[in-house]
Amino acid sequence: MKQITQFLLFTLFAGTCFAQAQPASDYGQTIKKQAETMGQSLLKKDFNTFVQFAHPSILTMAGGKQKMIEGLTQGMKAMETQGGGILNVAVGEPSTILTTKDGLQCTLPQVIDLKVPNGKLVSKSTLIAVSTDKGSNWYFIDTSGKDLATMQKVIPSLSSELVIPPAEEPKFQSN
């Protein structure tokens, strides 16, 4: 179950640059709306929509869109077979937007409630949001408790100015 949970969290949503900060309010509504759409598509098991928000590097690591969809489908079925599932996905407000040579970047908090036998797990994580088209469309990478240096190994273009808070252990809440 832990491996399935980690896989799902990592796929949710995986910086050398000349960063300039810009208030999140300029892009905040778009980022939050698109992150919420991504979360709702996961809840609805609409993986075709979900993968549209996956960063291209994460899609490549997963073997492409179709392989990622297959992995998500299998992971969700396995979780449900064990009595689990995703109950809710919520995102918070985006951080300050950084302008890099590759586009725009920021982070935002995410909370996922997972159904587990005898209760639920509340998992807090950080999403990295990346736009390569001046803020119209955003890709999201769930840090899954990984620090920035680890994330930069997967996506070297991530800004060193992004702030990823330390990981929190998921909290169990009994029924």
Rank of each mutant, 00 (worst) to 15 (best):
T150K: 12
E80Q: 05
L12G: 15
V130N: 06
T143V: 08
H55Y: 08
L148K: 04
N175P: 12
I86R: 00
T126Q: 01
L104E: 00
T73P: 06
P156E: 04
F7D: 14
I31L: 08
K32N: 12
N175S: 15
T16H: 12
G85S: 03
G39W: 01
S157G: 12
A149P: 03
M76Y: 07
V116R: 04
M38D: 07
E93Q: 09
Q3L: 11
K101C: 11
S157H: 09
G119E: 04
Y27N: 05
V91D: 00
L42R: 13
A35P: 06
S41T: 03
P109R: 01
A90C: 04
K115S: 11
A35Q: 01
F140R: 02
K67F: 13
P94M: 01
D102A: 12
D142G: 08
F13L: 09
G92C: 05
Q34M: 10
Q52T: 12
Q173A: 13
T37M: 14
E169C: 11
I4L: 08
K44D: 15
Q105P: 07
Q66G: 14
L87C: 10
M76D: 13
T37C: 11
H55D: 07
D102H: 10
Q29G: 07
A21K: 11
L148Q: 04
T150W: 11
F50W: 08
A62H: 06
P165H: 02
Q105M: 06
L43D: 11
N48W: 10
C17R: 12
A19I: 07
A167I: 01
D102R: 10
G145F: 00
Q152D: 07
P23F: 05
T132N: 10
L121P: 05
N88A: 12
L108T: 03
V163H: 05
I128M: 03
K101L: 14
K67Q: 14
T99N: 14
M38V: 08
